[in-house]
Design a protein around this nucleic acid. Sequence first.
DNA 1: TATTGTGAATTGGTTCACAGCC
DNA 2: GGCTGTGAACCAATTCACAATA
Lengths: 234, 234
Amino acid sequence: MAGQRSRRRIPEATVARLPVYLQLLTDQFELEVSNISSEELAELAGVNAAKVRKDLSYLGSYGTRGVGYEVEFLIYQIKRELGLTHDWLVVIVGAGNLGQALAGHGGFTERGFPVGGIVDIDDAKVGSLIGGVRVRHVKDLNQVVQARNISIGVIATPGPAAQDAADALVAAGVTSILNFAPNLITAPHGVSVRKVDLAVELQILSYHEQRRANARAATTLQSVPGNGRRGASA
Amino acid sequence: MAGQRSRRRIPEATVARLPVYLQLLTDQFELEVSNISSEELAELAGVNAAKVRKDLSYLGSYGTRGVGYEVEFLIYQIKRELGLTHDWLVVIVGAGNLGQALAGHGGFTERGFPVGGIVDIDDAKVGSLIGGVRVRHVKDLNQVVQARNISIGVIATPGPAAQDAADALVAAGVTSILNFAPNLITAPHGVSVRKVDLAVELQILSYHEQRRANARAATTLQSVPGNGRRGASA
DNA sequence: TATTGTGAATTGGTTCACAGCC
DNA sequence: GGCTGTGAACCAATTCACAATA
């Protein structure tokens, strides 16, 4: 049992893929698939089999040579590594369009992150019920966070309010932040921050879209080598 | 100026950062900052200055030694490279919580991606107005896409409907897809796909949160596996 | 026999460090 | 003097290829 704890650090790129494998394995488990090879899982995930094996090897040696991986056991191991053996309550800052959608759409709860609180700075929104959770004023953030021992905060405010939201979350004791606002935020060392910017994603697509348009323009005029690449992400 | 077109391929990692620089430069421009050094921009972006210079060097040599970069000119160059010299209409598939939030929150339009259409499979939703756009039935997707020459589609359906949505988008002629559903989708070669999964982001945070908890447990007691846990403890 | 687990090779990305230029 | 642009060095991630083994 000992030594299970901090083991070797897992590369960031692998950490980002484990949730994907987890989702796929869970789907397979529901389809009553009890065993899976790296080749099959790779196919489902759209990656190469060696990568799957290397990724899984960071968890330990949980496969069986000549056979593959036991789905249920692998699900358990990934969950353990990701810290998903228990739910994590999240608090959402900002009860606008996006905050409402996040709180309301149920995907968080289903995947282990129930909404433990929503706060907003606007008194008009305080008191309303979103996805079964009562909106409270941001001045009560400390209380919300501490009463339920929440360590993950989600920022769904307009851009300019994002840093204030982050500061308030940190002051309340939150140690991980998921930022949906378009502005970058800073947080003290020891607080993890991730950012999801919808417009950035679209701009990346725009780049590839544009390149294709240019490539088309170039080939109609004069043929050009160009190894027809695609720009999809993992 | 023919060689301006496809120039050397820009690394994916750089493409993902250009939108961030663009946003920061636009902010600076609005603050009437007309010139910026790689050091300053790096500071704003939270990255290292050499990286900024290398990233920008893929666009061309647009800085001035001893001085820095002219903000307005650099904005123009990044926009040109990303294909943001004109707006790109997007079509949203799925008018549920998330689709409504995306269409309603205005951030898309502001950053060059106005919503050109929303479709849903549910007749009850067809006809309603979201962010000024009338929801249409998914069977009219072809028409919506072709009438307005849309090349980017956003999937905001529940997971199981995502692949159908993708197929419909591709059939309608869309060549870039941003997928918010938790399921992976496949698309033919030549169609770019990006995926944003909110739960995946939270799971990555959970991993780090967990590590910190383990590290704390390890240093407090110098050993023992211990389930140093936070969250919904009673 | 089939498939894992992993060193070695390769590819891609980051950072250093300095020549070149304003 | 100050700051860019970029080879070279470094580091991380991916892929190959095969020995180990159920």
